[in-house]
Structures are given as structure tokens and as C-alpha cells.
Design a protein around this nucleic acid. Structure first.
Lengths: 343, 343
DNA sequence: AACGTCATCGCAAACGTTTGCATAAACTAC
DNA sequence: GTAGTTTATGCAAACGTTTGCGATGACGTT
């Protein structure tokens, strides 16, 4: 069984008219007689004709496809973003091509090239951890293909970006703890190299300052790996051994928050009464622990949606040449749960 | 700045030779003189020529793209599968187009149609929960486009499939509990409608029988929703109130296992000494609870890889016409943790 | 009768690439 | 010097679709 895709030519031959007439009839062109239109439409229906979008792409140099470069699909936050992208793209008639960089710079370079070769109409990208050279982005950008960065953005490239307000997230988390009456709030910070972690730290500091609390550097401990609960456990041990131990911990991510929580409980302290905890990211498990963990929800779905919207707008407004780059900052949402509210 | 994609024609014009010569030179055709080849290659390099794969697709009627229909990208298991698919596809030079059905039959129908219109070379699909009519699959299959089902397979369609051995997973989980000395093992079963949940239940039963333990229907409670810990909590309450309460629970998924664990602890019972627990799926949090939860790991990544391999094989062997359909059954892996091993 | 106006349709080019065939020049062999 | 062979290149068609322009014929108008 060979592939029997029916083309406009088949319909034309069958009806003994020209392909052009078929094409026009199919799009209800006024030049075509109602009778011919009817014939064409009925035959197309009967044969289940589907336009060959590759031919369309070639002719119009538009593929109606957007490429997505993503560090890791398996991470909840990122897969949520994909979901948001897919949502908007689908509604706008675009297909989504996904390329996973696996946090590798080399893969990222190849991915962008592959997507470009596939003639995607635009590219959404979140940088890999390794990426420090931006040549591949610049080259794409210079060729005029629309791109939008999301989450891990590349500042030097002049295009639209969507980020989450990590500063505000850190601020809200800390302010919440303050509002709940905690006085000595520690912070388990993420690796200094990543922008978002620094922002969360800054938000934390601002909240303290704004409420007249001192910034005690001995209460700010940095993890080098943000996904390892054991590191968080060790840091928490350290915090608990301080002469003046903290009465709350704001962790840069939920895994760390959980690690802290486990350690605190091991020391016989009660959460939230003896110590409050707030995490970051709203992982699924935070609503399943005892107590449930207060955390900062990142708007992954909305981020994907917004990035897709910006990209599609850039793609479709390309004729006008006046695509002003915007940077959307999405607000986080504090999800208050048991680990930070004293009865 | 209009899109300045360099084509073979540009190179030809520049060098004052014909496009055919350029094309041949680029693929090292023996007809072309070394001198010309050198010139062409150097100019192509300099101009950073990239072949237009849309034109290639049109000519060869091969897009080097595979379509993936997936119920939900945000689920860990599914995103892991995507990762596996992407891994193999990338290595084989294919791009991956993702369409999310959101568990909706209508979306699934539109997704398959959209992928077909985009002329993907083959399709990987996992059915939505709603799907009971298979017309859209049949129509694709009749058109001769290769497809492979993964996880949620469609039995009536004659094509390759990749599933995980839920029966064996249920068996192993239960056998493990038996081996650890538990005697009265309850099962929190998933909704009866889904094949995989029935399989896990059957594996559970087989393990009991094989070890001379009675199958007590009062210890088998079905959830209607498999993602809600509250349901699991209620069912566990019920189990604990039985005259002869079970001394272990095999839950059909990790959320349920966690719900059970919380409830058991609330009743003052010790895990694993008073009661053992095994979950299913190896969610991230299962290694972060107290105690950590023994669970059955599903090989999502391998499943994606295997499905992609089978599909690509089918695509590339199409000339031979002898594509025998195979059904791959992937084994699960028991991850033994704290919730089921008495000290 | 000659001309203009429509309505309806086909031709051909174009998108970028590949490839069978023809062509031209250059060389070999007698 | 003629025929034959090799080497290197170009032409044109094809993939499926769209679209500007031209063609055809019917009809109405003077």
C-alpha cells in the first residue's frame, strides 16, 4: 500500500478541469461558477482531500510551526510551560516542535539549527544551564527569525522575554513569614550563578529590611545543587546548631524545603509552631506532606501561554517591521499551607 | 530586514553555474570536478547555507518529523516518555512534533488530523481517557502512515505497541510484601475502566495465590479517581476499622500510597513495622517522605525510546512492505524503600 | 456588424531541491 | 582525421500549491 495522498491534481483530472480551478473552487473564489465549486467540493469531500501543508509551506515560506527549545521536559515546571505553549499554539493553528537541550550547550546549538532548518516560523527558547555563549541565538536573530525567551532568558538579545518575578516571589514568601510572627528567618539560597536564585534572595532581603528585621548573613546558606534534599538537610542541621537558631526557613525550592522540614522534625521541633517553612515552586508533593508546605507557585502554564502569544504576534506582525520587544514579568502566587501558619 | 535564507540558487548565481551543479557538488557527486566542488563548498560555508528542508520534504515526500499524541505533557510519566522519544528521534535525525489531547477525544481526533496534514512520517499515540471510537486511527492506518501506540494502546489497530507490564508490576509489589512477612495485604485499586489498573489488580491476586494466601475481596477497595489522596485516605480509614485489619497495603499509585501512609500514621501505627506500604509509579516524592515509599518504577524513558525505535523502523522499512507488528512489554522495576522493609 | 463587458477558466511561473537525460568539450585510440 | 569515450555541466521536470494574467465564449449594447 503506497501512500495515496490525494492532491488537487487528482481532483482536477477526475473533473477534467485545471488544478488552478480546483484550488480556487476550494477557497470559494468568485471567479468560479457555483456549479464547478459544488462539484469540486463534493469530490474533495468524497476523496477526503487534505491540502499538503508542506507544499503550502514551500510556497508561502510559512510553516505554521513554532519551535521550542527546552532544557528538560521532565521537570514539572517546564512541562507545564510546554502545556501552555501548546494551548495557545493549537488555538492559533500552529504546531509545536519540541527540542530538548538536556541542559547541554552543544545540544542547544544543534537544536536551534535543526529547528531553523525545519523552517519553523519562530522559536521559543529557555537557555540551558551551560550556555554562556550566545552566538547561535544572535545568528538566528540576525536572520530575522522571531524568537522569544522564557524563564531562562538571554539578556543581550533584543527580543521579547517572559520571566517570572522571582524577586517578588522571594519577597512575598518572606513577608508572609514575617506577618505570621516569625522573627529570625533563614534562607536556603540556590546556586549564585543563576539569576533567579539571586532574585529570590534579594526579595527575601527586601522583605526583611522593609519590616525592620536585620539581615543576618549567617542565616543565608547557599546550596550548590538545588535539587538535592541532602544538601538542604545538612544546611538545616547547621542552622539548628546556631546559638540563636532561626524560627523560620525560606527555601529557594520545595525539595530543599522538604529536606529542611524532615531535619527539623528529626530534632523534635514542631512545624509550624517552633519553626515555619516556605518553599518555592509548588511541586505536587507540597500538598501531601505533614504538615503541608507553604510555597510560591510559579505560573508555568501562563508563562508558556504568554511566550507563545508574544511569538505568534511577532510572527504575524512581521510585515509591519515594528515589533517592539517587551519583557513580561509574571507574578508568582503564594500558596499558604500548614508549614507556616501557627494555629 | 526580510528573511534572507540563502538557497542553492544564490550560490549558483554567485558562481555562475547551475543549481544542479551546486546540488551535486554539495553531495560530493562524482560527476563534479574537484575545483567546482571546492568553490561551492567554500561559498556555502561562507554564506552559511542551510538546505531548505521543506523543499526537501516536498520533493521526497518525507518530512523527517514524527508526531506524538499525548494525553497530558505535565504528568511525570508522560513527560518522561516524551524525553525518551526525543532522545531516539534526535539521534536518528527526526524532529518531534507534540500534540496534547488533554484527555479529550475531540482534541485527539483533531490532533491526529493536524499531524497528518503536517505530513509527519509517522505517529506515536497514547489514547485519551475518553476515546472509545477508533475511526480516526483506522483512517490514518488505512492511508498507510506508520503508527505505534504506547502505554494506552488501541488493540483493534494492527500496528506495533509498547506497554508496561502492569500485571508483573502488581505481582512484584505484592510478592515483595509477602516476602517481607506481611500476611494480610490490602489493595487500593484504580478505576476498573482502565486496563492497566485491572492488570495491577490481577498481578496482586496472582502473587497472593501463588503464596497460598487467600484473596479477601473486603481488602480490595477501588478508587474512582486515582489521583486524589483524599479518596485513598477514606479507604484506608475503612481498612483500619476492619475487625481483622490488613498489615500491608499495595496502592495502585503513589498518591494513594501516600494518602494511606498519612492515615496510618494518624492512627498511631508504625510504618513499616505495623503496616507495610507499596505504591506505584516512583514519583519523585516517594523518596522524600518519612519513611520513604517502596514503589514500582515504570520505565517511561525506555517506553518512549522503544516506541520511537519501532516507529522509525517502520518508517524506514516501508519499501519492503513486510512490517510485522510487534508488541513490546516493558518490565517494571521494584524500588524498595523504607515503607515495606521491617528492620 | 462591431465592440465592450462579464463570467469562467487555464497557462505558466514560483517556492527550493533533486535527478534523468542531453549536451558540450576534451581527450583517447585507431 | 574520424570515431568513440570520458568528464563536467546544464536543462527541464517533478514534488503540490497559489496566483497574476491572458484566453475564451456568451451576452448585451450601439
Amino acid at each position: 500500500m503506497k501512500s495515496n495522498q490525494i492532491t488537487i491534481k487528482d481532483i482536477a483530472r477526475e473533473l477534467d478541469i485545471s488544478p488552478s480551478t480546483v484550488s480556487r473552487a476550494l477557497k470559494d473564489h468568485p471567479d468560479i461558477s457555483p456549479k464547478t465549486k459544488k462539484q469540486v467540493r463534493e469530490l474533495a469531500e468524497k476523496l477526503n482531500y487534505q491540502p499538503n501543508s508542506i507544499a503550502l509551506s514551500l510556497r508561502s515560506s510559512k510553516s505554521n510551526t513554532i519551535g521550542v527549545v527546552i532544557p528538560q521536559v521532565v521537570h514539572f515546571f517546564f512541562s507545564t510551560i510546554i502545556s501552555g505553549i501548546e494551548d495557545i499554539a493549537y488555538a492559533a493553528g500552529y504546531s509545536v516542535m519540541v527540542a530538548q537541550s538536556n541542559e547541554s550547550y552543544d545540544r542547544e546549538v544543534m537544536d536551534t539549527k535543526a529547528l531553523f532548518n525545519n523552517r519553523v516560523d519562530g522559536i521559543l527558547v529557555s537557555m540551558s544551564r551551560e550556555t554562556t555563549d550566545y552566538g547561535h541565538f544572535e545568528s538566528l536573530h540576525n536572520r530575522g527569525i522571531p524568537m522569544v525567551f522564557y524563564d531562562r532568558v538571554c539578556d543581550p538579545i533584543d527580543c521579547s522575554k517572559v520571566v517570572v518575578d522571582d524577586f517578588d516571589g522571594g519577597y512575598r514568601a518572606t513577608k508572609h513569614l514575617i506577618d505570621e510572627g516569625y522573627k529570625r528567618i533563614a534562607h536556603l539560597a540556590g546556586p549564585d550563578s543563576l539569576h533567579m536564585f539571586r532574585q529570590r534572595l534579594e526579595g527575601y532581603k527586601k522583605a526583611l529590611q522593609e519590616h525592620g528585621l536585620p539581615i543576618d548573613e549567617s542565616l543565608i546558606l547557599a546550596e550548590n545543587a538545588s535539587d538535592d534534599e541532602n544538601v538542604a538537610k545538612k544546611l538545616t542541621e547547621h542552622l539548628l546548631e546556631l546559638d540563636e537558631r532561626p524560627d523560620a526557613i525560606f527555601a529557594n525550592n520545595d525539595i530543599a524545603a522538604l529536606g529542611a522540614m524532615i531535619t527539623i522534625k528529626e530534632h523534635g521541633l514542631k512545624i509550624p509552631n517552633d519553626m515555619g517553612i516556605v518553599g518555592f515552586s509548588n511541586w505536587r508533593f507540597t500538598s501531601l506532606t505533614e504538615p503541608t508546605i507553604t510555597t510560591v507557585a510559579q505560573p508555568g502554564f501562563e508563562m508558556g501561554q504568554e511566550a507563545a502569544r508574544l511569538l505568534i504576534a511577532a510572527i504575524e506582525a512581521k510585515k509591519d517591521e515594528v515589533i517592539t520587544s517587551v519583557t513580561k514579568v509574571l507574578k508568582t502566587e503564594l500558596v499558604v499551607r500548614g508549614s507556616s501558619v501557627r494555629g
